[in-house]
Design a protein around this nucleic acid. Structure first.
Length: 464
RNA sequence: GGCGCCAUAGCCAAGUGGCUAAGGCAGGGGCCUGCAAAGCCCUGAUCCCCGGUUCGAAUCCGGGUGGCGCCUCCA
């Protein structure tokens, strides 16, 4: 496996800390709103990484957190009058539902900030003891970046001059210092008891603490891979790394991976720009699998400029896989096609080269169709095709649905009955060579958004 | 201002020193079909511009032009 390490800024051979095992942590969402396409893309990217590692035979422990303490959540509480728990539980459910629809596998461990406070206390205490943190008169605790000689060596994104506009806080020693603990600020604040007095944790502390609590090794690196959106590299990941190595000595992660953004009209999609698309809205128009296929079809590090036109082109590509699947409907797999599996894996093991992988899939579909045209009754061939589609589903997370349901999604039973009735009528007309009537019925179906195909096994239909 | 990324056919997108520059969508032609649809076959680019290195560059170096991101919450 070769991956691009953001720290080294190049592709490197992946060598896990412990043989055949991978521990990875991906920054999850702050649960104050529904997931947008950017969250979806990040999830899918690391889901592909996980599936690839698993297919290569690694035992993967995958952790993705929920940030359920945050300024934006508090803001939402004040706006809605709802409790922290009401808000965060609602959006955690919503997130999991959306990602489930996109066929993203659940993480093995899904820690929440609110459930990891003890681990954060320990971390903050260590930093205070070792002199890497200082307390302000108002009770806030900050990380002292000037004490950490390695600060900024991870992302290389710091600078010496003061052109930076950082969060200005009274009493901070250096502009780059960041909050580890924010003391309780009054009635409307959310506060937790702590050894440092009532308050709440800073944003960066939780990831370091949760990694330590759940999956950290004791040696030079706590985990193998730490992932997240490209925007998190600095300052978020830089700060996590600083906290961890200052408190515990080891580096946080051996490899750092970051996914590129979803853009709208060439600009980053974000709430502040008012151009974000929610996953749940996209799912009203397209099946999750189609959305997944589209979002993953651009390499995870490259920006993806969202366009409905491209999404439709992408859907048509996936349609072809499912039409092939229809041709082998009901057949069980018997034996695995190692040659195909290796071709697909070899593409993905090169820093998730999805373009190459999808080209392998396209080629397989074409060759399979060709072979089926020649030998429509070749059972061994069909079994091999079934096996390959199963492998595509396992590795890429697409192609696992029922082939007929895929094309007929969103059509209610009543309409289905009517469609079947019309098709029967048309078949009868065809039998009597009444092609005029048959074509008329076909047009009628077309107007309903239904395309039909006459096959040796009878007429089948698809929703356009 | 600091640190980076990107620019390949109408569109999406691989390839990063060397046979005829992957693949998909759209378009054109054909086979199949009662006609279609689906499927299959054929069909398209010398790689943003300029200069350099090299026997040889889309691929390396320098300089442009254009676009994007982080440095402030952010996937």
């Amino acid at each position: 496996m070769v991956i691009y390490d953001s720290h080294q800024r190049k592709k490197v051979k992946f060598e896990p800390i412990k043989e055949k095992e991978v521990r990875m942590y991906v920054c999850g969402p702050t649960v104050y709103d529904d997931a947008h396409l950017g969250h979806a893309r990040s999830s899918i990217s690391f889901d592909l990484l996980r599936r690839t590692l698993e297919s290569l035979g690694y035992k993967v422990t995958f952790v993705k957190n929920f940030t359920d303490i945050d300024d934006k959540i508090i803001k939402k509480m004040n706006e809605t009058g709802k409790s922290l728990k009401e808000i965060t539980e609602y959006y955690i459910d919503s997130y999991l539902r959306d990602m489930g629809a996109l066929n993203v596998k659940r993480a093995d461990i899904e820690p929440k900030a609110t459930e990891s406070l003890e681990a954060m206390f320990d971390l903050i205490n260590k930093l205070l003891e070792k002199g890497y943190a200082y307390k302000l008169p108002n009770g806030d605790i900050y990380f002292d970046t000037s004490k950490d000689e390695e600060y900024c060596q991870l992302s290389h994104k710091c600078q010496d001059d003061e052109v930076v506009h950082r969060v200005e806080t009274e009493g901070k020693k250096n502009p780059a210092d960041f909050a580890l603990w924010k003391a309780c600020k009054g009635e409307n604040d959310v506060c937790f008891d702590s050894p440092f007095g009532p308050g709440r944790p800073g944003w960066h502390i939780e990831c370091s603490a949760m990694i330590k609590k759940h999956i950290a090794y004791d040696g030079e690196y706590e985990i193998d891979i730490h992932g997240g959106g490209a925007d998190l590299f600095f300052p978020h990941h830089e700060n996590e790394e600083a906290q961890t190595h200052c408190a515990y000595g080891g580096h946080l992660a051996k490899y750092w991976m970051h996914n590129g953004f979803v853009q709208i009209n060439g600009e980053k999609m974000s709430k502040s720009l008012g151009n974000s698309f929610f996953v749940k809205d996209a799912l009203k128009h397209y099946p999750g699998e189609v959305l997944r296929f589209y979002l993953m079809s651009t390499h995870y590090r490259a920006p993806l400029n969202f366009s409905e036109e491209d999404l439709i082109a992408s859907k048509k590509r996936l349609d072809k896989l499912y039409r092939l699947k229809k041709r082998v409907y009901g057949v069980n797999k018997k034996q695995e096609d190692k040659e195909f599996q290796n071709a697909l894996l070899n593409a993905m093991r090169d820093d998730l080269n999805i373009s190459k992988a999808l080209a392998v899939v396209d080629e397989f579909v074409k060759v399979a169709n060709e072979a089926l045209d020649k030998n429509p009754k070749d059972k061994a061939l069909k079994q091999k095709i079934v096996s390959n589609i199963e492998f595509i589903d396992k590795l890429l997370g697409v192609g696992g649905s029922d082939a007929y349901e895929y094309f007929q999604a969103g059509v209610d039973e009543e309409t289905k009955a009517k469609i079947n009735e019309l098709i029967e009528k048309r078949s009868a007309a065809k039998k009597e060579k009444n092609f005029e009537l048959a074509d008329k019925i076909r047009d009628e179906l077309k107007e309903m958004g239904i395309m039909i195909q006459d096959t040796p096994a009878g007429t089948v239909w698809e929703k356009v």
